[in-house]
């Protein structure tokens, strides 16, 4: 009886020693040196693996941060300045300061203002339908409404508005990783600075057609009338291909352009309501549905 106990104890001890030896030898033999800084930096990063920085994941971004001399061109949009400062401290390198940005949808072509002229049948994916044709409406620049951006968003910061058929960004959740920008075949989504209280002014249209054609396709299209150019005190607006663009670096959020735009294609967000006698803000404006018969 005692023999068998003793035997098993010895046997197990022997087995254990052999296994430990094997493990020791193997771990020494196949040891790969890795800079401990990489793990440190990786812990600092948000760990969302969203690829917003351009690297496939946080781990490879950490490797890149440790491996490159000058990291001022590298930036984690999700963690923002706070995380980048911590990274800079840990690595003893300089990082660039960047204003926080947020995704904006530069199209207001809801079902109401932008009439459908055809019916698409096929897979519900913007990328596929863009390959087949120019979309259900007459605007070949606007949102296709199949929600590739919503699928691409890993932070649940976007959803499709059922009534307008357009995507909506939940700015609080948006980490500005840029996945939606890449996913959109029409390049409608832009990363714009997130000012204090998330105040933004931008042109909600990408239609490069001449005024009449653009207006016929969509009631809130930019018709390239240049009125906004004239009122802008900072020359922040430029006009190219019948389309206005507000340079976020120059714009001071004075809202003058919003007031003069005849088609209400300039969007302002999160501003307090205007004082008396001002035009009602765009968001609540009742825009008459475009009627192709009348226009023609």
């Amino acid at each position: 009886m005692t023999d068998s106990i003793l035997n098993s104890v010895i046997l197990m001890a022997l087995l254990g020693t052999v296994a430990a030896l094997v493990l020791y030898v193997v771990s020494r033999r196949f040891h790969v040196y890795e800079d401990p800084l990489i793990a440190t930096v990786e812990d600092l990063l948000p760990g969302a693996n969203c690829a917003g920085c351009g690297s496939p994941g946080c781990r490879s971004f950490a490797e890149k941060l440790v491996g490159t001399e000058d990291i001022s061109a590298l930036f984690c949009p999700v963690g923002g300045n706070a995380v980048m400062h911590l990274v800079a401290e840990a690595l003893g390198k300089e990082v660039a300061e960047k204003d926080p940005t947020v995704a904006v949808i530069r199209c207001q072509g809801s079902c109401e203002v932008r009439p459908k002229t055809s019916e698409y049948q096929g897979p519900r994916s913007c990328a596929i339908s863009a390959l087949i044709y120019s979309g259900e409406t007459d605007c070949q620049y606007g949102c296709l409404g199949d929600g590739d951006c919503v699928v691409a968003c890993k932070f649940d910061a976007m959803y499709m508005d059922e009534t307008t058929g357009l995507p909506v960004v939940i700015t609080d959740k948006c980490t500005s990783c840029g996945m939606c920008v890449t996913a959109c075949p029409r390049n409608i989504i832009e990363m714009r600075p997130k000012h204090k209280r998330d105040l933004k002014i931008f042109v909600g249209c990408l239609n490069e057609e001449k005024g009449g054609i653009a207006k016929k396709a969509c009631a809130v299209a930019c018709i390239g009338c240049s009125k906004c150019l004239d009122v802008c005190p900072k020359d922040a607006i430029n006009m190219e291909n019948n389309l206005a663009y507000i340079d976020p670096a120059l714009c001071t959020l004075c809202r003058k352009c919003v007031d003069v735009c005849p088609t209400h294609s300039i969007i302002e967000t999160n501003f307090p309501p205007r004082k008396i006698k001002e035009v009602t803000p765009v968001a609540t404006l009742n825009i008459e549905p475009a009627n192709p018969q009348n226009d023609a």
Binding site: E119, G122, I132
Partner: peptide, 9 residues
């Protein structure tokens, strides 16, 4: 009356 249908071949 219904809009024209577009789909791939």
């Amino acid at each position: 009356d219904q809009p024209i249908i577009v789909s791939a071949s």
